[in-house]
């Protein structure tokens, strides 16, 4: 495996680790300004805008979410939730000079009080290599699509980030 491939795999693990550590500001820094986080409502959904999704969020909405989690009147986070990602080794689907696509199987667990639930599925990342800035070539997330195994099920609150 090339150093480049190892870096990509490490990047995917690191993203999940930042969520689990609840370092949300650092986590969001991994996303480009025009990034998109998408969790479809239907298995194999292709339509993005003209049907319901569970999440379809730009950086503004992701910023709102992480701000809300810190809010002193965010009662659904009193007490706070925790989460845990268990990832399979990311599969690199496409790799070229400016973009990379990966697919990673996951088991995600979220807690609140005594209860916990698990979501299972695959996450597809589209990563972009920065062309300029402080770290030319550094990876950023342009698009993250979370495919749940059971997106249509009657879930209760899903409050953190898969």
């Amino acid at each position: 495996m090339s150093t480049d491939q190892q870096d990509i795999i490490h990047f995917i693990y690191a993203e999940a680790a930042l969520i689990d550590a609840q370092k949300f500001t650092e986590w969001l820094d991994l996303y480009t300004e025009d990034a998109l986080y998408w969790m479809p409502l239907e298995f194999d959904q292709t339509e993005e805008h003209l049907t319901t999704s569970l999440m379809y969020e730009d950086k503004l909405l992701l910023t709102v979410r992480i701000n809300r989690l810190q809010g002193h009147r965010t009662y659904s986070q009193k007490p706070r939730s925790r989460c845990h990602h268990l990832l399979q080794t990311p599969e690199i689907l496409e790799i070229n000079d400016d973009e990379v696509k990966t697919k990673t199987a996951f088991h995600y667990t979220e807690t609140r009080n005594d209860e916990q639930f698990t979501l299972v599925g695959w996450v597809e990342h589209t990563l972009k290599r920065a062309s300029d800035g402080e770290k030319p070539g550094a990876l950023k997330i342009l698009r993250k699509r979370v495919n749940l195994l059971n997106p249509e099920a009657a879930h209760s609150n899903i409050q953190l980030f898969v």
Partner: peptide, 10 residues
Amino acid sequence: VGKPLRYMHK
């Protein structure tokens, strides 16, 4: 349009 959102409430 599409499937409904389903949301479990205790």
